[in-house]
């Protein structure tokens, strides 16, 4: 199991370098000139040239990439053009806010999703099942920005139960964004949990457990759930990326100073180092999430432990 995990971690490092290269190249392909954005249209050409040399933008791209990668591994992601502060510092101040939002949303999505999925499976074809599946379908179908704005309009603006902007509102401010962001994931988790659980309940070993004398609830908790949860964990890892992209929207709608909002600001200002930093950082989070899911498999399913 340990060699398995070490291997996965080494793979992860390679993937990260690849991703860094990809982001680096993509941001150089997009139109727009960072120098002009920084200095305004009316600067003289010499000043532009001087600035370009100062930032190392006249060097060939592989030299630039090498400098960048060196920086990444020492924690130096460059300096934001538009905010004139170190990118790592900007990310480290805004990241905790995104983490709070993501954790709140994941709690909504995963806990509510799994519990609703179990209840729906147990009460298959009952009223509760249809109700839960309906609500989850709604969550899966309606985009995050729509949910976010409707919740904000109804519950924050009209009813004034929650603050409109979450920036300085403490944990209460995170309730609406978490629901907006988590509902979608909760919907797919609930549907997947229901279907895998129903499938597992058809397995022979479930009969064995019942023949042993377990009651239905214990059969589900002790024998079915652990087998049903593997695909759900895969989905959770995949959802990490959609939670992060959803966070961009939610942070913008609810004015939370997180990574997502930082990325939006970077795009608007053509601030390449900042954009590069935020995108790379989000990628790392997603990759780590997948790594964690892989390690969890090994713990949960002894059959996977053996494979290399």
């Amino acid at each position: 199991m340990v060699t398995n995990i070490v291997k996965r971690i080494l793979q992860t490092v390679l993937i990260l370098i690849g991703v860094a290269l990809l982001i680096f190249l993509m941001l150089r392909i997009i139109p727009g000139n960072a120098i002009l954005t920084m200095m305004g249209d009316k600067t003289n050409p010499e000043a532009v040239e001087r600035m370009t040399a100062e930032l190392g933008l006249d060097k060939p791209f592989y030299v630039q990439f090498w400098m960048y990668i060196k920086g990444v591994f020492t924690g130096d992601l460059g300096t934001s053009y538009s905010l004139n502060r170190s990118v790592s510092e900007l990310i480290s101040t805004s990241f905790p806010n995104t983490v709070k939002l993501a954790i709140a949303a994941a709690l909504v999505a995963w806990i509510v999703g799994i519990i609703c999925g179990i209840i729906a499976a147990v009460k298959k074809n009952g009223i509760i099942d249809h109700l839960f599946m309906g609500v989850s379908l709604l969550g899966v179908s309606v985009p995050v920005f729509m949910v976010a704005m409707v919740l904000q309009y109804l519950l924050a603006y009209k009813l004034q139960w929650f603050p409109i902007s979450s920036g300085n509102a403490g944990w209460v401010g995170y309730i609406l964004p978490a629901i907006a962001l988590g509902w979608n994931s909760a919907g797919s988790i609930a549907r997947l949990t229901r279907s895998t659980l129903l499938e597992v309940l058809q397995e022979d070993y479930i009969d064995t457990a019942r023949a042993k004398g377990y009651r239905q609830l214990y059969v589900i908790i002790r024998h079915a759930l652990r087998n049903a949860v593997l695909p759900v964990i895969t989905m959770m890892a995949v959802q990490l990326s959609s939670l992060l992209s959803g966070a961009v929207i939610c942070e913008t709608v609810f004015s939370i100073n997180g990574i997502g909002r930082l990325a939006v600001a970077a795009i608007e200002a053509r601030d390449i180092p900042l954009l590069q930093g935020t995108v790379l950082f989000s990628t790392v989070i997603v990759i780590l999430g997948n790594l964690l899911a892989d390690c969890l498999y090994s713990v949960l399913d002894p059959r996977i432990r053996k494979e290399v």
């Binding site: 022979d204 070993y205 023949a211 042993k212 377990y214 399913d301």
Partner: peptide, 27 residues
Amino acid sequence: DAEMANVRGEEISMIFQEPMTSLNPVM
């Protein structure tokens, strides 16, 4: 149902056709 659950395993028990799939794979 609860009384019957207590009878199962204690007074009557059952073994199945497929030993390959009748045991919980993760336990």
